[in-house]
Design a protein around this nucleic acid. Structure first.
Length: 935
RNA sequence: GGGUGGAUAGCUCAGCGGUAGAGCGCCGCCCUUACAAGGCGGUGGUCGCAGGUUCAAUCCCUGCUCCACCCACCA
């Protein structure tokens, strides 16, 4: 009888107590820090810098978990693993947040404060609230090198931004131009194409009637934006459109104005759409702008930066918003009899991704990056495999965008961000772009210089992130060691925003790709497959999953969103349990499969939490059995002795390990091999599953059950070898598990008796790989047979509800001598596993009142069950089994009687089918005789 | 309009040329001293539809139907 240690572990694993303790330990030991000068092969990942305004959401948790798995795995493999954290200043997002805060608290706008004072506010805000997300990441156990934390507006990053801007300018790849841009009247800045979300909305298609000058002809044009007609400078028709051929070159009188505008011919017009004539507003439409350029039309701006109408729109409309002007123009046209058909129409609308406001195409001065020359090397690098996308399907997305790339508007009319290093001279027209702030104009020598008011698109500095964080432009040791990164892990929605830009900038400025692999994570969605959103309330805050939250707390966090509160009351009536970081991490990992979203549910997290609890309890069991007995304290397990024994022996068998021990060691090698292979291919779900099933199905459900007897045994050697196997397999399993559930694995590992040569933390042990020395195919085959026999007995027990306490007598008939000898030799395994007493024979006849199960081809398990058996049920059961076998036989028979199959299929496959046929036939025969025996 | 992904057990999803798998659910039996957050057993699938390639197709190819997402200047 073993004695539980006095400080017996609780039956349930409690992450809340464990997790903070080990986090502190790892940080104090400096285990997350990497030294660029260390001799090991580098393996570097740069964390996609979350926004300074951000708070941890499940997307971060997923990306971080995947990165941490990779980093911990490689670190345990002996790599110089470095994972660099950082924060993005998030120009527009942060500025808007602080502006809103300012408005709410003090009723002021940023203009009330002025630029410098406002920026001081933002910095203050950043110091106070920013970077909270990094602290949250610690709670998830992310082994980031926190000493290296960077910010995109650090002096280092800022210097890199300057350097890049100036160099690109000098190379002619950055230029300033007056052009039509996407303008958000709400954010009051231009935005790039990528920041505009095109959505289809219900609207109308108006037909306007323009009279042709000098005739009574009229020309009809269709539009979804009638107000822009005030800025029309032409009407376009297709050059080969017979209807309008004669009108080309003539003019129309633009209604509501005193202007006459030309009718021009342009290929872009689709003669089949509407009337085949298009009003052209070059000042407020991208298509029309291009058309205007081609046809030499005037460009009129009738909408200003606030989204209100201005001259040259007629006076009566000035000052109106776009929406007001639309209503007015339509009414006025109608009154003038110049409004044709109006019909409901689905219109594509561009909305600012930040504010949701409809974006106005407007003319303005902006800075641009000429992207085509930068894109070319970025395309080649992926074509040649220097950078690889995983899953591969994203390669096409990247290539398509890169090949059709447009120039990039990098200036933003904001204050928070990297100010554009360009100065305008009041004395002359000279523009100075410079690394240092200039004091005099190089053109005229004048000192009246004004720096450009605008800042750079946030993604400009993000694009430099993989190298700016490592000290570039200086040739630092960090840069040399950790650049290129091994892998970038990010969400697919920022391939264009970020990945593409890093590829272009990295290649242009370092000559190397920034990372060798881009791993795109799945999207996390809710249990119904819907995108998570704060408004809907269907999201989960990762920290709530870790620490738990009551319904009241969840509702409070919903910030008054009605829909969210409704959702929470329905789907989270009990709030959220405190699952712990490990459970969340394991859930995210196990659900990460290529090409599908992660549909997260509390059910799934619970399953993973239960798995951790299972591992915890298996460890409790081990610990209870690794101490000595009360009577013989000297029989406590000696890890070093076992390690030496196993290491010195040629094989586990030579070391004297029993079949079950050799079997579990061998199965562990398979699991390690599977995990290794899966992680190498970024198949996280597969890796997590391999460990899950090994530990649960094989280690816990089979090995531990079978180890109970030898652990109680008086045979000291037997006991010792079982202890050793159990402790060793568990210890190695914890290593396998560690990248996935770092906290629980460390906690258990620390408690486990283990060889003295091991380091002080599980996270710096060697990651297990499949060792061929420990693979034992014979043991696996033999165990498989024994377990099948035991399972057959259990099936019968269960079918007839044999009480667990009854050790049933079972006759096992094994015709094959070798197999019978095997079962005979290991009868204890079967007997223990099936709670039975075996009698072995080669064959036999009917036993009254018995149930029978056929194992494999010809092994019969016969259990006398007087009083319990239902003969009719038994007959039906066997009948059904025969039916199943018949189906198999028919299938195989069909194959084998097909001459083409026999001739063409590999001999191995044919043989396998023949063996299968023989097996099924034999099985059938046994089943039939079993049926007869019931008669 | 282009592009991509998906359709497999009641639900959510793995697998992806050679005997259909998991988790949850469901149905039995069991609080057997590691674990009831558990154990044992069981039920359950013409692998979206139609063709094709192959000795062999859930898996490869073509078309179709529905879902989801991305890109795009049809007023």
């Amino acid at each position: 009888m073993t004695v539980p240690p006095s400080d017996a572990l609780p039956k349930q694993y409690d992450p809340s107590e464990v997790e903070p303790r080990w986090l502190r330990f790892w940080l104090e030991q400096g285990l997350f820090h990497a030294d660029a000068a260390a001799p090991m092969a580098p393996y570097a990942i740069t964390l996609p810098p979350p926004n300074v305004t951000g708070s941890l959401h499940l997307g971060h948790a997923l990306g971080g978990t995947i990165q941490d798995i990779l980093i911990r795995w490689r670190r345990m493999q002996g790599a110089n693993a470095m994972w660099l954290p950082g924060i993005d200043h998030a120009s527009i997002g942060t500025q808007m947040l602080v502006e809103r805060d300012l408005k709410r608290r003090e009723g002021k706008t940023r203009h009330d404060l002025g630029r410098d004072a406002f920026l001081a506010r933002v910095w203050q805000w950043k110091e106070k609230h920013g970077g909270r997300i990094i602290e949250q990441m610690k709670l998830l156990g992310f082994s980031l090198d926190y000493e290296r934390e960077r910010f995109t507006m650090d002096p280092g990053a800022s210097a890199a931004v300057r350097e890049v801007f100036v160099r690109l300018y000098e190379e002619g790849l950055i230029y300033r131009a007056h052009r039509l841009v996407n303008w958000c009247v709400d954010c009051h800045t231009g935005v790039s194409d990528l920041e505009v979300n095109n959505v289809e909305e219900r609207g109308s298609l108006w037909t306007l009637i323009y009279p042709v000058v000098g005739s009574d002809q009229r020309i009809e044009v269709a539009t979804t934006r009638p107000e822009t007609m005030l800025g029309d400078t032409g009407v376009a028709v297709h050059p080969s459109d017979e209807r309008y051929r004669d009108l080309i070159g003539k003019k129309v009188r633009l209604p509501l104005t005193d202007r006459e505008i030309p009718i021009v011919a342009d290929e872009f017009v689709d003669p089949a759409f509407g009337s085949g004539a298009v009003k052209v507003t070059p000042g407020h439409d991208f298509n029309d702008y291009e058309c205007g350029l081609r046809c030499g039309l005037e460009v009129l701006s009738i909408i200003d930066l606030d989204g209100r109408l201005i001259a040259p729109a007629p006076e009566k409309y000035r000052g109106m918003t776009v929406a007001e002007a639309r209503r007015r123009v339509v009414a006025d046209l109608d009154e003038a009899g110049l409004l044709g058909e109006v019909k409901d129409y689905t219109v594509p609308v561009g909305r600012c991704e930040r504010s949701g406001t409809v974006v106005e195409p407007l003319l303005s001065n902006q800075w641009w990056v000429r992207t085509a020359p930068l894109a070319e090397p970025a395309i080649r690098a992926v074509e040649s495999g220097k950078t690889r996308f995983v899953p591969d399907l994203w390669t096409k997305t990247y290539m398509h965008w890169m090949s059709n790339i447009k120039d990039w508007n990098i200036s933003r009319q904001l204050w928070w961000g990297h100010r554009i290093p360009a100065w305008y001279c009041d004395g002359c027209d000279h523009i100075t772009v410079s690394r240092e702030d200039p004091t005099a104009c190089p053109g005229c020598g004048g000192a009246a210089l004004r720096q450009d008011d605008d800042v750079l698109d946030t993604w400009f500095s993000s694009g430099l992130w993989p190298f700016s964080t490592l000290g570039w432009p200086a040739a630092t040791r960090d840069l040399k060691t950790f650049y290129p990164n091994a892998v970038l892990v990010t969400a697919p929605d920022i391939i264009f925003f970020w990945v593409a830009r890093m590829m272009m900038m990295g290649l242009h400025f370092t000559g190397k790709v920034p990372f060798r692999v881009v791993y795109l994570t799945p999207i996390v969605v809710d249990e119904n497959g819907d995108k998570m959103s704060k408004v809907k309330g269907n999201g989960m805050d990762p920290l709530d999953v870790v620490h738990g939250a009551t319904l009241a707390q969840l509702i409070e966090a919903a910030d008054g969103h009605e829909e969210a509160i409704k959702y929470l009351k329905k789907h989270r009536p009990q709030g959220l349990q405190a699952f712990g970081a490990d459970a969340l991490r394991f859930t995210l990992a196990v659900m990460t499969t290529p090409g599908r979203s992660v549909r997260l549910s509390t059910d799934r997290i619970e399953t993973c939490r239960n798995f951790i609890n299972k591992v915890w309890n298996a460890s409790r069991f081990a610990l209870m059995n690794l101490g000595g007995t009360e009577a013989r304290p000297d029989t406590a397990y000696e890890p070093d002795r076992f390690a030496d024994l196993l290491a010195r022996a040629a094989s586990p068998a030579a070391a004297g390990l029993a079949l079950v021990d050799r079997w579990i060691l061998s199965r562990l090698q398979r699991a390690a091999g599977a995990v290794d292979e899966a992680l190498g291919e970024f198949r996280f779900g597969e890796a997590a599953n391999a460990i899950y099933h090994f530990m649960w199905d094989e280690l816990c459900d089979r090995y531990i059950e079978l180890a109970k007897a030898p652990l109680q045994s008086d045979d000291e050697r037997r006991r010792f070898l079982t202890q050793g196997t159990l402790a060793t397999v568990l210890e190695l399993s914890l290593r396998l598990l560690h990248p996935f559930i770092p906290f629980a694995s460390e906690e258990i590992w620390q408690k486990l008796p283990k060889p003295s040569a091991l380091p002080a933390s599980l996270m710096v042990t060697l990651y297990p790989q499949s060792e061929s020395r420990l693979v034992d195919e014979q043991a696996e085959r033999e165990m498989s047979l024994l377990l099948d026999v035991a399972a057959a007995i259990r099936t019968l027990r269960s079918t007839y509800s044999v009480p667990p306490s009854w050790k049933v007598p079972v006759e096992v008939r094994v015709p094959d001598d070798a197999s019978r000898a095997l079962v005979e030799q290991h009868r204890d395994i079967v007997e223990q596993s099936a709670r039975a007493t075996l009698t072995l024979s080669a064959s036999g006849g009917a036993i009254p009142q018995s149930a029978r199960q056929v194992v494999r081809a010809d092994i019969e398990v016969v259990v006398p069950l007087q009083g319990l058996i239902d003969i009719d049920a038994e007959r039906a059961r066997i009948q059904k089994e025969i039916g199943r076998v018949d189906k198999e036989i028919a299938q195989v028979d069909k194959k084998l009687s097909n001459q083409k199959f026999v001739a063409n299929a590999p001999a191995e496959v044919v043989d396998k089918e023949r063996a299968r046929l023989a097996e099924e036939a034999s099985r059938r025969q046994k089943l039939v005789s079993a049926l007869e025996a019931l008669a």
